[in-house]
Computed example of a mutant assay.
Amino acid sequence: MADASRALDIVLASLDDSKAENIISINIQKKSSLGDYMVVASGRSNRHVSAAADHLIKALKDAGLGMPKVEGLNSADWVLIDAGDIIVHVFRPEVREFYNIEKMWQTPDLDEETVH
């Protein structure tokens, strides 16, 4: 958990440094085995999304957290960076609004008793 918390701090600092917008961190530990945290952020343009993603990849590598898996960097509409415990999505604003993935992950957990 300490590693995930440290990685989250690095991710958030890097995105902030890159002037990413509307940065949201979601704790998904009890919702998914994909990771501990999901971070969603926006860039103002394809170029900004690409630059923020590149900056983050370098920050993770420089911090000794290895080379994350990256998808979508060529088009830079939506870049997914899988850093193990942290899953990062960097979107152009209109693409983020269309998919609205943070809404899906921020929903409260259902009680098992109410699921049929």
Score class of each variant (00 low, 15 high):
A76I: 13
L80F: 11
Y99H: 03
A76H: 08
G84R: 03
D82L: 11
I81P: 01
D82Y: 09
V79I: 14
V79C: 04
I86R: 01
D77R: 00
F91T: 00
A83F: 10
E97F: 04
N74E: 15
P93R: 03
S75E: 15
L73R: 12
I86F: 13
I81C: 04
I101G: 07
V70T: 13
L73T: 13
V95A: 06
I101V: 15
I87H: 00
K69E: 15
W78P: 06
L73Q: 14
V88Q: 01
H89Y: 10
R96Y: 04
D77A: 09
W78D: 03
S75C: 14
Y99R: 00
I86V: 15
E94I: 08
R92A: 01
I101A: 09
E97M: 04
I101M: 14
L80G: 11
W78N: 06
V95R: 02
N100V: 08
E102Q: 12
W78Y: 10
H89C: 12
G72K: 08
H89W: 07
I87S: 05
E97Q: 10
K69L: 10
R96P: 09
R92S: 03
P93E: 11
I101H: 04
E94H: 08
F91N: 05
F98H: 03
D77S: 11
H89L: 11
F91V: 02
S75V: 15
I81D: 02
R92I: 07
N100L: 06
V95G: 05
R96F: 04
N74V: 15
E102N: 10
G72Y: 08
A76S: 15
L80R: 05
D82C: 11
D85R: 00
E94G: 02
A76V: 14
L80V: 15
E71L: 03
V90C: 02
N100A: 14
V95S: 03
V95C: 04
S75N: 14
I101Y: 07
E94Y: 05
E102M: 09
P93T: 12
F91Y: 09
V95D: 03
V88Y: 01
E94R: 00
D85G: 02
V90F: 06
G84Q: 05
W78F: 11
F91M: 07
K69W: 11
E94C: 01
F98Q: 01
L73I: 15
R92C: 02
S75M: 14
W78L: 10
F91Q: 01
L73E: 15
N74G: 14
P93H: 08
V95M: 07
I81E: 01
F98M: 07
D77V: 04
L73Y: 14
I86A: 09
